[in-house]
Simulated scan of single mutants.
Amino acid sequence: MNSKLLFCALFFASIGLCAQDKKWSVEANYPIIDEDGLNGVIDLGVKYRFVNLGIIQLGAGLNGSFFADRQHFYFDDNLEFDNKWKRLLLQPTVFGELNLPGISRLKPSVGVGYSVLLDEYDRKIVDSGYNESDSWGAFNANLGLSYDLTNRFFVKIQYDYLNHRQKWLAEADYENNVYRYETRGKSLNVFKAGIGFRF
Protein backbone atom coordinates (compact mmCIF):
# COMPACT_ATOMS: atom_id res chain seq x y z
CA MET A 1 0.00 0.00 0.00
CA ASN A 2 2.83 2.39 0.92
CA SER A 3 4.59 1.67 -2.37
CA LYS A 4 1.44 2.60 -4.31
CA LEU A 5 1.14 5.89 -2.41
CA LEU A 6 4.82 6.63 -3.00
CA PHE A 7 4.44 5.86 -6.73
CA CYS A 8 1.41 8.20 -7.02
CA ALA A 9 3.24 10.99 -5.18
CA LEU A 10 6.31 10.65 -7.42
CA PHE A 11 4.15 10.51 -10.56
CA PHE A 12 2.29 13.75 -9.78
CA ALA A 13 5.49 15.45 -8.64
CA SER A 14 7.19 14.55 -11.94
CA ILE A 15 4.24 15.92 -13.91
CA GLY A 16 4.51 19.17 -11.97
CA LEU A 17 8.26 19.43 -12.57
CA CYS A 18 8.12 18.56 -16.28
CA ALA A 19 5.15 20.81 -16.98
CA GLN A 20 6.66 24.15 -15.98
CA ASP A 21 6.51 25.39 -19.60
CA LYS A 22 2.85 24.33 -19.91
CA LYS A 23 2.95 22.96 -23.45
CA TRP A 24 -0.23 20.89 -22.92
CA SER A 25 -3.79 21.99 -22.26
CA VAL A 26 -7.14 20.27 -21.89
CA GLU A 27 -10.54 21.93 -22.24
CA ALA A 28 -14.24 21.33 -21.83
CA ASN A 29 -16.69 23.42 -23.86
CA TYR A 30 -20.37 23.77 -24.59
CA PRO A 31 -20.84 23.56 -28.40
CA ILE A 32 -23.61 25.18 -30.45
CA ILE A 33 -24.11 24.20 -34.10
CA ASP A 34 -26.31 25.95 -36.67
CA GLU A 35 -27.85 22.66 -37.86
CA ASP A 36 -31.63 22.70 -37.26
CA GLY A 37 -32.67 20.38 -34.46
CA LEU A 38 -29.22 19.45 -33.16
CA ASN A 39 -28.43 20.42 -29.57
CA GLY A 40 -24.91 20.61 -28.22
CA VAL A 41 -24.04 18.24 -25.38
CA ILE A 42 -20.27 18.59 -24.78
CA ASP A 43 -16.97 19.31 -26.49
CA LEU A 44 -13.68 17.97 -25.07
CA GLY A 45 -10.24 18.82 -26.40
CA VAL A 46 -6.51 18.48 -25.90
CA LYS A 47 -3.76 20.69 -27.35
CA TYR A 48 0.05 20.49 -27.52
CA ARG A 49 2.26 23.49 -28.28
CA PHE A 50 5.45 22.25 -29.96
CA VAL A 51 7.13 25.48 -31.18
CA ASN A 52 7.51 28.77 -29.30
CA LEU A 53 8.49 31.61 -31.63
CA GLY A 54 8.17 34.32 -29.00
CA ILE A 55 5.07 36.21 -30.07
CA ILE A 56 3.41 33.10 -31.47
CA GLN A 57 3.20 29.47 -30.37
CA LEU A 58 2.46 26.74 -32.90
CA GLY A 59 0.70 23.54 -31.91
CA ALA A 60 -1.68 20.74 -32.76
CA GLY A 61 -4.95 19.76 -31.13
CA LEU A 62 -7.85 17.36 -31.22
CA ASN A 63 -11.42 18.16 -30.20
CA GLY A 64 -14.47 15.92 -30.07
CA SER A 65 -18.00 17.38 -29.95
CA PHE A 66 -21.22 15.50 -29.33
CA PHE A 67 -24.65 16.71 -30.50
CA ALA A 68 -28.07 15.05 -30.15
CA ASP A 69 -31.76 15.55 -30.87
CA ARG A 70 -34.94 13.56 -30.25
CA GLN A 71 -38.45 14.06 -31.57
CA HIS A 72 -41.07 11.89 -29.91
CA PHE A 73 -44.76 12.49 -30.45
CA TYR A 74 -48.09 10.83 -31.20
CA PHE A 75 -50.34 11.55 -34.16
CA ASP A 76 -54.10 10.80 -33.99
CA ASP A 77 -53.57 9.09 -30.61
CA ASN A 78 -52.39 5.81 -32.18
CA LEU A 79 -49.44 6.68 -34.45
CA GLU A 80 -46.14 7.00 -32.62
CA PHE A 81 -43.13 8.78 -34.09
CA ASP A 82 -39.76 8.52 -32.35
CA ASN A 83 -36.76 10.02 -34.15
CA LYS A 84 -33.26 10.20 -32.65
CA TRP A 85 -30.29 11.94 -34.22
CA LYS A 86 -26.72 11.83 -32.86
CA ARG A 87 -23.60 13.49 -34.27
CA LEU A 88 -19.96 13.13 -33.28
CA LEU A 89 -17.63 15.81 -34.65
CA LEU A 90 -13.88 15.05 -34.56
CA GLN A 91 -11.58 18.01 -35.26
CA PRO A 92 -7.82 17.54 -35.58
CA THR A 93 -6.21 20.95 -36.14
CA VAL A 94 -2.94 22.83 -36.27
CA PHE A 95 -3.05 26.27 -34.68
CA GLY A 96 -1.14 29.41 -33.86
CA GLU A 97 -1.64 31.15 -30.52
CA LEU A 98 -0.53 34.79 -30.11
CA ASN A 99 1.24 36.08 -27.01
CA LEU A 100 0.37 39.78 -27.07
CA PRO A 101 2.93 42.06 -25.37
CA GLY A 102 1.38 43.85 -22.41
CA ILE A 103 -1.76 41.66 -22.48
CA SER A 104 -0.25 38.31 -21.62
CA ARG A 105 -3.50 36.88 -20.20
CA LEU A 106 -5.40 37.36 -23.49
CA LYS A 107 -4.47 34.84 -26.21
CA PRO A 108 -6.06 35.02 -29.69
CA SER A 109 -5.65 31.92 -31.86
CA VAL A 110 -6.31 30.73 -35.41
CA GLY A 111 -6.38 27.15 -36.64
CA VAL A 112 -7.04 24.95 -39.67
CA GLY A 113 -7.75 21.26 -40.07
CA TYR A 114 -10.00 18.62 -41.57
CA SER A 115 -13.05 17.55 -39.57
CA VAL A 116 -14.86 14.22 -39.62
CA LEU A 117 -18.59 14.09 -38.83
CA LEU A 118 -20.32 10.85 -37.88
CA ASP A 119 -24.14 10.92 -37.96
CA GLU A 120 -26.53 8.27 -36.68
CA TYR A 121 -30.29 8.31 -37.23
CA ASP A 122 -32.73 6.04 -35.44
CA ARG A 123 -36.30 6.44 -36.70
CA LYS A 124 -39.39 4.62 -35.54
CA ILE A 125 -42.86 5.10 -37.04
CA VAL A 126 -45.65 3.06 -35.44
CA ASP A 127 -44.21 -0.49 -35.24
CA SER A 128 -41.57 -0.13 -37.95
CA GLY A 129 -38.33 1.76 -38.02
CA TYR A 130 -34.79 1.83 -39.29
CA ASN A 131 -31.31 2.85 -38.25
CA GLU A 132 -29.02 4.75 -40.59
CA SER A 133 -25.49 6.08 -40.20
CA ASP A 134 -23.43 8.41 -42.35
CA SER A 135 -19.99 10.00 -42.22
CA TRP A 136 -18.45 12.88 -44.10
CA GLY A 137 -15.50 15.21 -43.93
CA ALA A 138 -15.11 18.96 -44.08
CA PHE A 139 -12.35 21.55 -44.19
CA ASN A 140 -12.26 23.37 -40.86
CA ALA A 141 -11.01 26.86 -39.98
CA ASN A 142 -11.38 28.43 -36.57
CA LEU A 143 -10.79 31.62 -34.59
CA GLY A 144 -10.49 31.54 -30.82
CA LEU A 145 -9.84 33.75 -27.84
CA SER A 146 -8.75 32.59 -24.39
CA TYR A 147 -8.24 34.51 -21.17
CA ASP A 148 -5.99 33.19 -18.38
CA LEU A 149 -7.71 33.31 -15.00
CA THR A 150 -4.54 31.96 -13.33
CA ASN A 151 -1.28 30.60 -14.73
CA ARG A 152 -3.07 27.27 -15.32
CA PHE A 153 -6.83 27.86 -15.65
CA PHE A 154 -8.38 29.77 -18.56
CA VAL A 155 -11.75 30.50 -20.19
CA LYS A 156 -12.20 30.51 -23.96
CA ILE A 157 -14.56 31.08 -26.85
CA GLN A 158 -14.12 29.74 -30.37
CA TYR A 159 -15.82 29.92 -33.76
CA ASP A 160 -15.40 27.05 -36.25
CA TYR A 161 -16.34 27.18 -39.93
CA LEU A 162 -16.76 23.78 -41.64
CA ASN A 163 -17.03 23.63 -45.43
CA HIS A 164 -18.36 20.33 -46.80
CA ARG A 165 -17.59 19.84 -50.51
CA GLN A 166 -18.98 16.38 -51.24
CA LYS A 167 -21.56 16.16 -54.04
CA TRP A 168 -24.37 13.63 -53.94
CA LEU A 169 -27.53 12.99 -55.93
CA ALA A 170 -30.66 11.14 -54.87
CA GLU A 171 -33.80 10.23 -56.79
CA ALA A 172 -37.19 9.22 -55.45
CA ASP A 173 -40.11 7.80 -57.43
CA TYR A 174 -43.57 8.49 -56.02
CA GLU A 175 -46.36 7.10 -58.21
CA ASN A 176 -44.33 7.58 -61.43
CA ASN A 177 -43.27 11.11 -60.47
CA VAL A 178 -39.50 11.22 -60.18
CA TYR A 179 -37.99 13.79 -57.83
CA ARG A 180 -34.27 14.62 -57.89
CA TYR A 181 -32.36 15.97 -54.91
CA GLU A 182 -28.86 17.32 -55.38
CA THR A 183 -26.40 19.12 -53.13
CA ARG A 184 -22.97 20.45 -54.01
CA GLY A 185 -21.81 21.05 -50.46
CA LYS A 186 -22.77 22.98 -47.42
CA SER A 187 -21.19 24.86 -44.57
CA LEU A 188 -21.67 24.53 -40.84
CA ASN A 189 -20.91 27.01 -38.09
CA VAL A 190 -19.96 25.84 -34.60
CA PHE A 191 -19.60 28.12 -31.57
CA LYS A 192 -17.89 26.93 -28.37
CA ALA A 193 -17.45 28.42 -24.91
CA GLY A 194 -15.76 26.74 -22.00
CA ILE A 195 -12.88 26.35 -19.57
CA GLY A 196 -9.41 24.84 -19.79
CA PHE A 197 -6.34 23.80 -17.84
CA ARG A 198 -2.70 24.19 -18.91
CA PHE A 199 0.00 21.78 -17.72
Rank of each mutant, 00 (worst) to 15 (best):
R198P: 14
Y130G: 15
Y48E: 08
V155R: 05
W85G: 09
A172N: 12
E171D: 15
L149E: 11
S65Q: 09
N177K: 12
I33D: 08
G59N: 11
Y48C: 05
T183V: 00
K156P: 02
E80V: 13
L149K: 01
D43T: 11
K186G: 03
V190H: 03
K167H: 11
F199Q: 08
W136R: 00
E175I: 03
R180K: 00
L53I: 12
G137C: 01
E80H: 13
S65F: 04
Q20V: 02
T150D: 04
L188T: 03
S14P: 06
A141F: 00
P31R: 00
D69I: 00
Q20P: 05
A170T: 14
Y74N: 12
D160P: 07
L90C: 04
I195T: 11
Y48N: 07
F154G: 01
N52S: 10
Y161V: 03
N151T: 10
L162W: 03
Y30P: 09
D134V: 01
I157D: 13
S25A: 12
A13Y: 05
I125P: 06
Q71H: 12
M1D: 15
K107F: 01
N78G: 01
G144Q: 02
R70K: 15
C8Y: 11
G61A: 08
N131F: 10
I42R: 07
N151V: 02
F50S: 00
L100E: 11
K22I: 02
Y159M: 06
Y30C: 05
G113E: 04
D69G: 11
Y181H: 01
G37S: 01
I42Q: 07
S104V: 03
A28Y: 06
Q57M: 05
Y179P: 08
K124V: 03
G16W: 09
N39R: 12
S25F: 03
I125W: 14
L10H: 10
G102D: 14
F7E: 14
D119N: 05
L44K: 00
L17Q: 10
D173A: 14
N140P: 00
R152L: 04
V155G: 11
F81T: 09
I55M: 14
T93A: 07
A13F: 04
G196C: 04
